[in-house]
Design a protein around this nucleic acid. Structure first.
Ligand code: NAD
Ligand code: NAD
Lengths: 218, 218
DNA sequence: AAATCTTTGTGATATAGTTAACAAAACGTC
DNA sequence: GACGTTTTGTTAACTATATCACAAAGATTT
């Protein structure tokens, strides 16, 4: 019943790309229809949660039948703006940054790393996975010029804050931060931390202290 | 009041390594005491949440004073088993895998990637960041031999499931999965998915559809 | 076309996590 | 050692998320 403009729960929004990916898989396997139970098996999300998630966008399925794969796929394509490309900048072309550049996020995705920045002269001027690397001196100029408002941060932690300040000045709107630093930004800028060391450490903590009895497998 | 053996909320457990890291920072800056308000500013977690998190372990602070950095650090060191090393295997020495191998997770951390595996003959027999790379044929043997029960999976998605099956057979207990595949495992095995493409895609979705009014900055 | 089976969409409920607010305790100062 | 200040620990309220369970709709079979 609820239509698109209504705010979807964040937890739901985080699962949408996952649904989209698996619907694509089903589609290329030639599947015409899918039930919430089947999809649940594939994405490892409870089927009631899937039905609830879908229901925020209205009645997308048919009782006794399930969901039409094509229809659903088309719907999510629009909802996830798959036709519109979001250009992303990557700051810090080191180990992690290089891996991201080589990885093609474009495959069934609406985002593309367009440009990289580093201070290392041996990297500046090169191209990694089709992405040109510029010197940090050109950061502001290039970002504004190309209208890029999303950045991935993969620099050493100690320089993360000053670089963030400079990104803010370049009018960035969102920052995906892979450094261990917690960044200070104006409230209007969205920062998402992906802290791989913390992920590994808390995973190990869970393994030791929560030896699986409960159904919580995340 | 609650003592250690009592199950801590998962959300709290996930924040512990973060607290630990920032307490270490404070310690090396020579700070003796810290309040929940200061810590909040540093880790970007509400101060009430921090006090609540700490309180699961008992009364660690002093009213009117705050927390003693040294004491807290020692406490978390024990709680997070910082003195005990967890050995981890990495499967798939490609772009992402190589970045992880070069990165020293050991720095103020209790985990270490001990061994890598791949099928690529040009990688087998080499050493990346001090970690020896073996052929997949030796997976079972080496894991059992070295008693390794945690693995990081950074292989192409299509081979993720068969490799997982083989890891399960080698008696693995936990699997940190960076591939887009959703894995089938026995219920006793913990799998944590870190799906970077989904992270980027849902981040972009948030940026477009939730133009920050609310206080939810994650 | 009736009977049976399937599966959605959603109220109701359960579980988890966050935050405000404040009494009580301890600090630091005079 | 009394007094104003600071900051904890926690109760209570709130917000968010997940799941159960089932009527209703429609599919499929006979
Ligand atoms: N590699 C991993 O597996 C991993 C895991 C967890 C966290 N991280 C974090 O990700 C970040 C990057 O890690 P990494 O392993 O790729 O490090 P790295 O040292 O390989 O790469 C850092 C890059 O940033 C560049 N750089 C340095 N100063 C800069 C500046 N002022 N402006 C622009 N670029 C600058 C360097 O030239 C280098 O290319 C670090 O903060 C690290 O803590 C990495
Ligand atoms: N690189 C990224 O930025 C990134 C981002 C998101 C997700 N991922 C996912 O992470 C995984 C790895 O990505 P990547 O970019 O490192 O890929 P990659 O192709 O660079 O590396 C894959 C590695 O796995 C090895 N491999 C292939 N088959 C194997 C087998 N049967 N057994 C053992 N090893 C085998 C290959 O030899 C290669 O070294 C992929 O599933 C990818 O989708 C990567």
């Amino acid at each position: 019943m609820a239509q698109e403009p209504v705010k979807i729960p964040q937890a739901t929004a985080r699962r949408l790309p996952l649904y989209y990916r698996f619907l694509n898989n089903l589609h290329s396997q030639g599947k015409q229809r899918v039930s919430s139970a089947e999809l649940s098996e594939a994405v490892k999300v409870d089927s009631a949660t899937i039905r609830r998630d879908f229901s925020y966008f209205g009645a997308l399925g048919k009782k006794g039948y399930g969901y039409n794969v094509n229809y659903l796929l088309g719907f999510f394509r629009k909802t996830l703006d798959q036709d519109e490309l979001t250009k992303v900048a990557l700051i810090g072309v080191g180990n992690l940054g290089t891996a991201f550049l080589n990885y093609n996020f474009l495959k069934n995705n609406n985002t593309k790393i367009e440009i990289g920045f580093d201070v290392d002269e041996s990297k500046v001027g090169t191209t990694i996975g089709d992405v040109p690397i510029y010197h940090m001196d050109e950061l502001q100029e290039k970002l504004v010029e190309q209208g890029i408002t999303v950045a991935i941060l993969t620099v050493p932690a100690p320089v993360a804050q000053p670089i963030t300040d400079s990104l803010v000045e370049a009018n960035i709107k969102g920052l995906l931060n892979f450094t261990p630093a917690r960044l200070n930004v104006p409230k209007t800028i969205r920062v998402h931390h992906i802290d791989l060391a913390v992920e590994l450490q808390s995973f190990v903590y869970f393994l030791k202290h929560y030896p699986i009895t409960e159904k919580e497998l995340i």
